[in-house]
Design a binder for these strands. Structure first.
Length: 139
DNA sequence: GCCAACGTTGGC
DNA sequence: GCCAACGTTGGC
């Protein structure tokens, strides 16, 4: 199993919106960046991810699971853009903020730190375990 | 609200 | 195919 991070502006699509979709999940649509799209194309059923709130909050707030592999993005006719479906798994007891991530030597190499603009990105197994521990959630 | 970083577009 | 111009993202 591989691990990922999905970034969203809470004013556009928040963790609460994701939770409200329940087991049915939702398309992670609207991505118009090749690197982010390529990440989604690599995802497998059952892969796990973090749900990250950008802008004001800047924190990992929950975990999600990939429930549909890459398919055309329904919000565009442009065949270049694909997306996956994800469902909410569990909220973090303690949101893990960008500040905490930057201060933690074990997390200083995260794509989130190195390339802050990439909206869908890979997370290593070590990073996954560390953030789950900090956040008080089962990996 | 500003600005740096980055990706994309389009003219040559 | 290169590179300048432009638009967008996201942290501060």
């Amino acid at each position: 199993m591989r691990y990922w991070l999905f970034k969203s502006e809470p004013s556009t699509w928040s963790w609460d919106d994701q939770v409200a979709k329940g087991a049915e999940g939702e398309e992670w649509d609207g991505v118009r960046n090749y690197q982010a799209r390529n990440c989604m194309r690599e995802m497998a059923l059952g892969d796990r991810g973090f749900f990250y709130h950008s802008q004001k909050e800047k924190a990992v707030v929950g975990t999600v699971e990939v429930i549909a592999t890459s398919h055309p993005d329904s919000t565009t006719e442009d065949a270049r853009w694909d997306c996956v479906d994800i469902k909410a798994l569990a909220p973090l007891k303690t949101p893990v903020t960008l500040e905490m991530i930057k201060e933690d030597p074990a997390l200083s190499e995260m794509v989130l730190v190195k390339n802050s603009r990439l909206s869908v990105q890979p997370v290593s197994g070590e990073e996954w375990a560390r953030i789950c521990a900090l956040g008080g959630v089962e990996g």
